[in-house]
Every structure is written in structure tokens, then in C-alpha cells.
Measured scan of single mutants.
Amino acid sequence: TTVVVGNKKYTFDNPEAAEKFAKKVAKKLGATVHKTNGTFKVK
């Protein structure tokens, strides 16, 4: 599962961990999490 934050990509074996990370980053940046085909995008 990939999490994309700006131009950085983070890969997780565990989708739950990926989602948690994405939400944490989004909260910090005041952004939102978008899920597309198993990829979480923070923007």
C-alpha cells in the first residue's frame, strides 16, 4: 500500500498502517486523505 505525500512516496505492507500514517500526516498538514486504487494521497 502506497501513501503519497506531495512528491514523496511511502510504502507499507499493511494497509491499516498506511491509512493511519496518511491520516496522521494529513492532520498535521491540515490536508485530506484521498484513496485511489489502494493508494492513499494526502493533499
Rank of each mutant, 00 (worst) to 15 (best):
T32K: 09
E19N: 05
E19F: 14
T32D: 05
K8E: 05
V42H: 02
T36E: 15
A22K: 01
Y10E: 00
A17D: 10
A17C: 08
Y10G: 00
T32Q: 09
A26W: 02
K28D: 07
Y10D: 00
G6H: 07
G38Q: 05
T36P: 02
P15N: 08
V3R: 00
N37L: 06
V3K: 00
T36K: 07
K35T: 07
K8W: 12
L29Y: 08
K28I: 10
K23W: 15
N14R: 08
A17M: 12
F12T: 00
K23T: 12
N14H: 08
F12P: 00
A31S: 06
T36Y: 13
A31C: 05
F12R: 01
K41W: 15
K23Q: 12
V3L: 02
A22V: 04
E16S: 11
F12G: 00
E19Q: 06
G30D: 05
T36H: 13
V5H: 03
T39S: 15
V33T: 03
A26P: 01
K35I: 11
T1W: 15
V3P: 00
A17R: 09
F12L: 03
A26I: 02
F21P: 00
Y10P: 00
V42L: 06
V25G: 01
G30V: 03
A31P: 01
G38S: 06
A22I: 02
F21N: 00
F40T: 04
V3F: 01
T36S: 11
L29A: 04
V4R: 07
K20T: 11
K23H: 14
V5R: 02
T32R: 07
T1E: 04
G6M: 09
N14E: 08
A18N: 00
K23M: 14
G38I: 03
T2I: 14
K28M: 11
A31T: 07
D13I: 11
V4Q: 10
T11K: 13
A26C: 03
K28W: 08
K43E: 15
N7V: 10
F12H: 01
G30E: 04
E16M: 13
G30K: 07
T39P: 03
K24A: 14
A17W: 09
Y10I: 05
